[in-house]
């Protein structure tokens, strides 16, 4: 770690003075190995009003400093948006979730191992340097939305759930203005600047995440497949919410994790399912639509098969087509 200036923000304006630190569970690791080398770190954890979950209209406004533990355990979240709770609990460990914050989780960096190793070329770390993961070991890389410059996937579980729930990110700009950005517009693809990952401008502070009104009677789950039973980043994940309207599916919402530089969504797939009766044949066709014909890196070719199968299995369980024994399907209630 380089020597830093540490400042504690006492007003929102102070937050623009340097690299924000919240729980520090990602930033500190990256600073220790000098993947991130900020001169100034601004601690926002004493700022007022960012640590609570409040009802807003029919939804919830989740302060940026609400910890992952608090959010996952919130009774309102567990009842109305259970898939969010499940996604968070599928991530990291209890100790890390106790420190990790809502804002920090959204902005955690990729787990591409080449990004973490300063002896390796990485365009996300140093734009223009090259991408050592291309041609290297790439099991954790993405399937969709990559660019020539970067193949990395976004590792957050929480963000995938928020995407499926159509949440918005509330941002306070350096000049004090607040704006809200739907989560699927919040992240940007790598293009030729993989170091820029979101629409945040210099000095922007995430103040909250806002959940829209919950769906009564929806069946929800977060299905995460990983290399061990717990405490590992997803190989692929599927966040799903489906409401059965008699025999047909309605309010279908799906997002996919660890397959793209941000939570991946496919509106065509949703359109194929919406209003239809669940069937294996339909799910197979939808999977054909979802899964690309090739992978950007040979080591992620398996994700095509794994995503397809996880997608189908999840839909089968959400719609009652498959046996849900041993899975974690929740029904929302207000």
């Amino acid at each position: 770690m380089r020597p830093i200036d540490y400042r504690r923000a006492s007003s929102f304006d102070d937050a623009a003075a340097g690299q924000i630190i919240a729980g520090g569970t990602n930033l500190l690791d990256l600073m220790k190995i000098e993947v991130m080398t900020p001169d100034t770190v601004v601690d926002i954890t004493r700022l007022d009003g960012l640590s609570t979950i409040e009802a807003e209209d029919d939804g919830l406004r989740i302060g940026a400093l609400v910890t992952n533990t608090m959010l996952a355990n919130d009774a309102r979240v567990r009842a109305g948006w259970p898939l969010l709770s499940r996604a968070i609990l599928a991530g990291a460990s209890a100790q890390i979730r106790n420190k990790a914050t809502t804002g920090g989780n959204l902005l955690q960096r990729t787990r591409c191992p080449y990004f973490y190793d300063t002896s390796q070329a990485c365009n996300k770390r140093s734009p223009g340097e090259g991408c050592a993961a291309r041609g290297g070991a790439g099991r954790m890389l993405a399937l969709f939305g990559t660019s020539d410059q970067c193949l990395a996937a976004h590792p957050s579980d929480m963000a995938v759930a928020l995407a499926a729930l159509q949440a918005e990110v509330e941002i306070r700009g350096a000049e004090g203005r607040r704006r809200r950005v739907p989560i699927h517009d919040f992240y940007r693809g790598p293009g030729d600047r993989p170091d820029i990952e979101t629409v945040l401008d210099r000095g922007d502070l995430i103040t909250a995440v806002v959940l829209p009104r919950p769906l009564e009677g929806a069946r929800q789950t977060y299905r995460k497949v990983r290399d061990r039973a717990s405490y590992a980043f997803a190989l692929v994940s599927v966040a799903g919410s489906v409401t059965m309207d008699g025999e047909t599916m309605s309010d279908v919402s799906l997002a996919y994790g660890s397959v793209a530089p941000h939570p991946w969504m496919d509106h065509d797939v949703v359109a194929m399912l919406e209003g239809e009766r669940p069937s294996d044949a339909l799910f197979q066709r939808a999977a054909d639509r979802l899964v690309p014909d090739s992978a950007p890196h040979p080591d992620t070719d398996y994700k095509r098969t794994l995503l397809r199968r996880t997608f189908i299995a999840t839909l089968r369980q959400l719609t009652g087509l498959g046996d849900a024994t041993g899975t974690d399907i929740a029904r929302t209630h207000g």
């Binding site: 787990r111 191992p113 061990r228 039973a229 717990s230 405490y231 590992a232 980043f233």
Partner: peptide, 9 residues
């Protein structure tokens, strides 16, 4: 985080 010894689960 990348070398996976078995977790409790």
């Amino acid at each position: 985080a990348n070398y996976h010894v078995p977790s409790h689960a």
